[in-house]
C-alpha cells in the first residue's frame, strides 16, 4: 500500500513523500498516535547540525519518541487498536546482517550495532501515516499510563540503559550520586536513581534555579557557582552535552571521588578535550552511553508503573498539540523551541 511520510527536506521545510509498504509476515503495522519532539529533532529542524551532516541525513522523517496503535498484525498476537511503544533502534540483523557481538552480548547491547539504524538519524523517523515494524520492536503498554507520557518512553529507556551500564562498570559503593544538568534527561535519570538506589544521596548540579526547583525528589541541588568544598561524589552522570560538555566533564573529573564512574549521556557537535592525566590519577571509569535497546524499553515501562512515577513524569509534559497538517507541525516545533523546560508531544492526526 502507499504510505505518506513527512520528511524534513531542509531546515524548517517539510514535504510529504509517498513510500510503498508491503504487508509482511514478520512486521506489524502501527498507526503513530503520539509523537514527542526531542532536542535532536530540533537541531535538524533548525539547521543546527553542520552542513555536511544535514546533506548526508536529509531528507528524513523526524521523531524517534513515539507510541501508536496496532493496525495490522499478521499473526494476530497483538489486538487491533492496542496501544504500543515504538522502538526506534533497528539493529543490523533486521536488515539481514549476521547477528553482531553488540546484539549478542548483553553488556554491549544492540544499540551499539554498527550495522544498525536509528530513526530520525539517517533513517526515517515516526512522522508517517503508518509504520511497518518488526514485532520485536513493539512494546505493549499498561492502560493507566496516559498516552502523552508513554510518548516519552524512549527518553526513560535511555536513562534505564545508562544506569544498567553504570552497574556493569562501577565499584559498588554508591553513597552519593551527582547528576549534572537540569533538563529532561537529568530529571528522569535522578528519579530513576532514587528508585534504584533508595539509600543513596542524589545531588543535581544545574544552571537554572527554577528548573532545579522541579527536582523535588532529590536530596540536594547546586547551582554552577555554588561552593562544593568537602562534597564527596562517588559517581557522576553527565546530562548536558553541547558546548558546555567540556567544562562540565572536567569539573566532574575535579570533583569526583577516586575510582568513581562518570557516565555520559549528553552529545556535543565537536570533540571534547578531557583532563586524562587527572582521570588516570583518580582511576576514573568513563562510561559512554548512547540510545537504548528493547530490554531497556521494557524496564522503562516497568519503572513507569511504579507509584508516583506517572505523576512526576507528567510535570515534564507541558505541551500536547493536535497536529493535522504540516502547518501544525511547524507550530509544534516552534512552540517546543520556546519552552523553558519539558517536552512537547504531538497528537498525530496527519
Amino acid at each position: 500500500m502507499i504510505n505518506q511520510v513527512i520528511q524534513l527536506t531542509k531546515p524548517k521545510t517539510f514535504e510529504i513523500v509517498t513510500q510503498h509498504v508491503e504487508l509482511l509476515e514478520t512486521n506489524v503495522i502501527v498507526r503513530p498516535t503520539y509523537l514527542s519532539i526531542c532536542h535532536a529533532d530540533q537541531r535538524y529542524y533548525k539547521g543546527m547540525r553542520s552542513e555536511k551532516v544535514l546533506n548526508k541525513k536529509l531528507p528524513m522523517a523526524l521523531i524517534h519518541e513515539a507510541i501508536g496503535e496496532v493496525q495490522y498484525d499478521p499473526l494476530n498476537q497483538l489486538k487491533y487498536g492496542e496501544r504500543v511503544v515504538l522502538i526506534p533502534n533497528i539493529s543490523g540483523s533486521f536488515f539481514g546482517f549476521p547477528p553482531s557481538l553488540s546484539e549478542k552480548n548483553e553488556k554491549i547491547g544492540e544499540n551499539y550495532c554498527l550495522n544498525g539504524k536509528f530513526r530520525s538519524s539517517g533513517f526515517d523517523g515516526f512522522m508517517q501515516e503508518i509504520v511497518s515494524l518488526p514485532r520485536e520492536l513493539i512494546i505493549r503498554t499498561p492502560e493507566f499510563i496516559p498516552a502523552e507520557i508513554l510518548a516519552i518512553t524512549e527518553l526513560v529507556s535511555v536513562c534505564v540503559h545508562s544506569l544498567k551500564r553504570f552497574s556493569y562498570y562501577s565499584h559498588g559503593v554508591n553513597d552519593t550520586f551527582g547528576v549534572w544538568g537540569d533538563g529532561n534527561i537529568s530529571y528522569i535519570l535522578s528519579l530513576l536513581i532514587k528508585r534504584e538506589y533508595p539509600k543513596s544521596k542524589v545531588i543535581v548540579f544545574g544552571k537554572h534555579v527554577d528548573k532545579l526547583e522541579m527536582f523535588s525528589f532529590v536530596d540536594e541541588t547546586y547551582l554552577l557557582n555554588d561552593k562544593t568544598d568537602g562534597l564527596i561524589i562517588h559517581h557522576f552522570f553527565e546530562c548536558v552535552g553541547g558546548e558546555a560538555q567540556t567544562d562540565v566533564l572536567n569539573r566532574m573529573i575535579d570533583l569526583i571521588y577516586p575510582g568513581g564512574t562518570i557516565s555520559t549521556l549528553g552529545v556535543s557537535e565537536t570533540a571534547v578535550p578531557l583532563n586524562v592525566r587527572l582521570m588516570m590519577e583518580k582511576g576514573i571509569v568513563l562510561v559512554n552511553n548512547s540510545r537504548s535497546g528493547v530490554k531497556d524499553f521494557q524496564k522503562a515501562i516497568d519503572f513507569m508503573q511504579e507509584v508516583n512515577i506517572v505523576s512526576y513524569l507528567s510535570s515534564l509534559i507541558n505541551n500536547v498539540i493536535k497536529v493535522e497538517s504540516i502547518k501544525n507541525i511547524h507550530q509544534a516545533f516552534e512552540m517546543d523551541s520556546l519552552k523553558h523546560y519539558g517536552k512537547t508531544v504531538m497528537e498525530w492526526r496527519v
Binding site: I2, Y72, Y80
Partner: peptide, 9 residues
C-alpha cells in the same frame, strides 16, 4: 490494502 488495515473494524 489501505482499507484492509481496518479489517478488524
Amino acid at each position: 490494502e489501505k482499507f484492509y488495515l481496518f479489517k478488524d473494524e
